[in-house]
Nucleic acid binder design. Sequence first.
DNA 1: AACACCCCGCAAACCGGTTTGCAAGCAAGG
DNA 2: CCTTGCTTGCAAACCGGTTTGCGGGGTGTT
Lengths: 353, 353
Amino acid sequence: MVTSGTPEKDTRTQTVLRAEDPRSPATISDVARLAGVSKTTVSHVLSGRRPVSDATRAKVNRVIEELGFQQNFFATGLTGRRTQTIALVVQDLTNPFYPALARGLQQTMAEHGHVVLLADVGAGVPPVGAFLSEAVQRRVDGVVVAAIDISDEQIEPLRAAGIGVVTVGDPRRRTTTDVISSDDERIAADAVAYLHDQGHRRLGIVSGPPHTAPGAPRLAGYRNALRAHGLRPLKAAETTGDWTRESGAKAMTALMDLERRPTAVFCANDLMAIGALDAARVLGLAVPGDVAVVGVDDIDAASLVSPALTTIRVPAQDIGRVAGEQLMTRIGTPTGPARRVLVQHSLVVRESA
Amino acid sequence: MVTSGTPEKDTRTQTVLRAEDPRSPATISDVARLAGVSKTTVSHVLSGRRPVSDATRAKVNRVIEELGFQQNFFATGLTGRRTQTIALVVQDLTNPFYPALARGLQQTMAEHGHVVLLADVGAGVPPVGAFLSEAVQRRVDGVVVAAIDISDEQIEPLRAAGIGVVTVGDPRRRTTTDVISSDDERIAADAVAYLHDQGHRRLGIVSGPPHTAPGAPRLAGYRNALRAHGLRPLKAAETTGDWTRESGAKAMTALMDLERRPTAVFCANDLMAIGALDAARVLGLAVPGDVAVVGVDDIDAASLVSPALTTIRVPAQDIGRVAGEQLMTRIGTPTGPARRVLVQHSLVVRESA
DNA sequence: AACACCCCGCAAACCGGTTTGCAAGCAAGG
DNA sequence: CCTTGCTTGCAAACCGGTTTGCGGGGTGTT
C-alpha cells in the first residue's frame, strides 16, 4: 500500500466498527455489546435453541456480518457435543484404491460441513492405537476405518466414546460396526460367468491371502461359480498371492506349469493380474490367445498395460461416498443395528479376456 | 471382575480412586483432588512452565496414570497457542503424485505428534476459501498447499492468522511462503542430456501448460539444454498438453506429423508420455526404435506400460517429508525469509529411451 | 380487574483447562 | 536475629462460548 505515512498508527485493517483490539478476532461479547443485547441472546440466534424475535435476530445478524464474527471452535467444542470432524484411517495411500476412497469420502463430508482427519497407518506411523486415541481426545464425530489390520478390540474405545464407526471392506469380520464393501462373492462369480461365456472351461485363480477380507469371499465365489456352471474346482489350479504384482507373476507361472493348464485365470485384484501378464510375456504366451486374464478393481493402470486388462470395476470413490453417507446417519443415531452395504461392481471388458 | 455383588453401586470400571461419575473422563480437578494439590500444580506438572518439587510431581503423575487422565483438547486449545494440527490442501487425490506426497507428509507430522486435516479441492468441494477459513478457525499450526489453483491472495488470511504456510511445486510464483519443489529446469536438462548422449539430435517436447508451475520451467530447461548442446530449439517441435494422457497422445501425433520429425520426445510428465506411447502405437512407430520417449514423475504406471517408460523420478513422498520438516521449523519461527528447497530427482532408464 | 400463559431477554454458572499475583516456608547472608 | 531471595503451592481470574433459572411485559380468558 503506497500511501503518505500516517505518523501515529496505521489502520491497516478495515474493521471500522471494532471497538477493542482490532487484530484479535471478534468474540460473542463484542457482538452482544455492539448489538445492544446479551451474550445469551447472541448464542440463541446462533444455535436457534430458543426463539428470538425477528427484530433482535436481524440486528444481531447484521453485527455478526459487519464484524465477520465466527464462533471459536474450541469454546464451542468445550461444551458442545459435535465437532464437525471425522477421521479416516487407511491402510496404504500408495495403493490407488485408497486415494479414490478418500476423495469420495472427503467430498461427501465436505458437503455436510465436516472436515476429515487422515491417517495412513500402513507404515506403522502413526501407530493405530495412538491415532485412534487422538481421535477420541479430539472428539471426532465419527471414524471410517479402511484398514484391514485394525481389529474390533482396537475399535472398541471409539464406540465406548459414542463415536460413530463405519468400516470398509470386511463384511464378515466386523460384527459391531456398519460395513461398506464390494460384493466379493458375486465379483468372482461374474468373472467366472464371463469367462465361461467366452468358452473357457479350464479355469484357474490367483487368490488373495485366503483368510483376509476380500481374499476369502472371492475364492469362495470362484469355487461356487465353477460348480454352478458344472465345472469342478481343481485344487491345483488355486494359487495364492499377497495382492502385489510380483506375487501375481509367481502364481501365474505356477499355473502355467500345470499339466492341464488353465485357458483362463481369474486374479483377485488388478496388481496381481498385471503380474500375471508379466509372467505370460516371459513365458511367451499370448494373452488372451493362449490364456485369458481377468482382474478386479479397475485401477488406472489396468487400462495402461498391454494387453489392456479386462477387469471387474470396484468403484472406490463411490464406496467412499457411501461410507460418508452411512457415517452421517450413524452420527445421528449412534445406536441401532449394524448395517451392511454392498456396493455394485461392473465388468470392464478390455483386451486381456 | 467376578466378585460377589455389592448391592449398592457396581464398580464396573477398575478406576478405584475415581470419586465422582465414573463414566465421564477424568478432569484436571479430579487429578488435583486425588493428589491432594491444586489444579494449578497439576497444570504445571503437565506443562513444565513452573518448577514443581520431585515429590509432588511424582504424586501427581501417579494419579494421572491411575486415572488415565488426558488433557481435554478443547480446554487446552481455548487458551493455548498450538493445536498440533496441520492442514494439507491437494489438487487431486486421484493423481498418484498427491497420495505419495500426503503419505510422506503425514508420516513426518505424526512423528512430531501432529495430526493432518485433508482437503482435496480439485472437484471444487470443498471450495478452497471455505476450507482455508475452516483451517483458520480451527487454529491449525500450519498448512501445506499442494494445489496449483490457489493464489497468494487466498493464502494471505492464513499468514495474517500467524499460521505457517509451505507450498509445494511452484517455485516462481510464490514469493511469500516457503516452497518445496522439484528442480524443474534441471529435470528437463537432464532428460535432454540423456537423449543427446543416446545420439539423438532432433528433439521435441510435449510441454505442460506454459504459464503454470512445472510447465514453464520444464520448457525453459528444455530450450536452454538444447542450446547448451549446440542444438537449436524448433518452435514447431514444441507442443503443449494439459498433463493428461489424451493431451499427450494428441501432441505426439502432431509431432510425428512434422516434416523432419523428432527422433526423441521429452514429455513433461508421465501421463502425457504414456499418451505419447499410445499415439506411437497407433501410428505404427516403434519405441524406442523409431522415436524415443522420456517422461517425468515415475508414477507407478510408468513401469507398467509397454515399452516401460524411461522417466525422471520426482520423489513425491520425499517432497511430502521435506514439506513437513520445513513446516515444523516454520511453525517454530513464523517470521523470517521464505525458504526454497529443491528436491533431488533421478533418471530411471527403462525401455522407452 | 384478576389470572394464567407465552414470548423474549438477561445474569450467572459452567465446560476444563492456563496463567497471574500472592504468600508461606525455608535456607543463606549479614 | 533480621533481611533477602528462592522454592513451592494456592486462589482466582480468564479463554469464549453454552445452558439454566428467572423475571418483565404483552396477550387472552374468565
